[in-house]
């Protein structure tokens, strides 16, 4: 179990997709931001920070006591390696508080060449047991993000008990994949094609979720479960879950060594980021102030419903729903 003093270092981490969204998240109570850097994160370019924006983000956030974690969690292919090395050097020079990484080769490269840099093992690594947490610690990670697909939350407690020297992060709110993170190739199985990528100056295959986050949301498409012949057993979608909501888990997370509570949604509108951050700030503060009196408030349910509706609206806008 964590001590009361540990509870004071709990960070609420919000997504930043632009300087404007970063400001909104900070105003709403985020202690930390995660931000994709052009070409190295797993989200669309419109949500990533460019060469000039990233240093400004770091400066703006850190000057207000807010940490910045650079999301650099693509799985690297040969075509990406030189670009990655150049870009990582540039990112590190701007002084983010940590790099979020998934690729084992990339983690080893950074831990060997930049030993002072903190590394967070990404959700892409699907860390779901204490031994996996130890593996990434030994590889150089200072923190691991626990798989948001862990079925039994007691596994989080077990990881903390067995690896107390490692910081833990969980996704507390937001969209969730049907597949384990880092274990989905449905997109490129369905459709991928060659195109020129000006960032790396090479042609590359576009449409791989696992390597570049170019998810084509196969799990949200209408389909039928059949016996392979003519008999349709049911119609539906692989993934119809709304946002993952972790308000009621806050006490458990805090008491079991989780240091960072993360809100998913770099691709979501700024209003979503703002409202989700505000809600979780309120809930975390309430718990930290008086754990015994913590409980879900009636108006939180309304706010959650609004967030779920906002995600559905986003999905409709992108023709997913």
């Amino acid at each position: 179990m964590s001590t009361q003093s540990d509870k004071h270092v709990i960070e609420l981490m919000a997504p930043a997709r632009s300087l404007e969204s970063a400001e909104a998240a900070i105003e709403s109570g985020a202690n930390a931001l995660y931000a994709g850097v052009t070409g190295l994160s797993m989200r669309p370019k419109r949500t990533e920070f460019g060469k000039d924006e990233f240093p400004e983000l770091v400066k703006t956030a850190q000057s207000q006591g807010v940490k910045v974690y650079a999301t650099t969690n693509i799985y690297l292919k040969e075509q990406d390696w030189e670009f990655f090395k150049k870009k990582i050097d540039e990112i590190i020079s701007h002084g983010p508080d940590a790099l979020i990484m998934g690729d084992i080769g990339a983690i080893r490269y950074v831990s060997e060449n930049y030993p002072e840099v903190h590394i967070h093992a990404s959700i892409q690594a699907s860390i779901a047991n204490p031994e996996a947490a130890k593996f990434y610690r030994d590889l150089g990670a200072n923190l691991v993000v626990i798989s948001r697909s862990v079925q039994d939350r007691s596994e989080i407690a077990r990881i903390h008990e067995e690896v107390p020297d490692l910081d833990l992060e969980v996704f507390v709110h937001g969209g969730i994949c049907f597949m384990y993170d880092g274990n989905c190739m449905m997109s490129s199985y369905w459709k991928q094609e060659w195109d020129h990528d000006p960032l790396i100056g090479k042609d590359r295959l576009i449409g791989q979720n696992n390597t570049k986050g170019e998810c084509q949301l196969v799990c949200k498409r209408a389909c039928s479960l059949t016996d392979g012949e003519d008999f349709s057993m049911a119609d539906g979608r692989l993934m119809r879950r709304p946002d993952q909501v972790g308000l009621s888990n806050i006490p458990f997370f805090v008491e079991n060594g989780v240091r960072i509570l993360k809100i998913e949604g770099r691709a979501m509108p700024i209003s979503y980021i703002k409202e989700a951050t505000k809600l979780y700030r309120t809930a975390i503060d309430m718990y930290l102030e008086d754990p015994a009196r913590f409980g879900i408030k009636a108006d939180w349910q309304q706010q959650i419903s609004a967030l779920i509706e906002a995600r559905l609206e986003y999905e409709r806008q992108w023709h997913i729903a």
Partner: peptide
Amino acid sequence: NVYHVETARALASVGADRISPSYE
């Protein structure tokens, strides 16, 4: 999720004897 030869080398350095590069 081994997509790059350096990732294969990193895994070899922690004891992997055989690597299956990603099917993708």
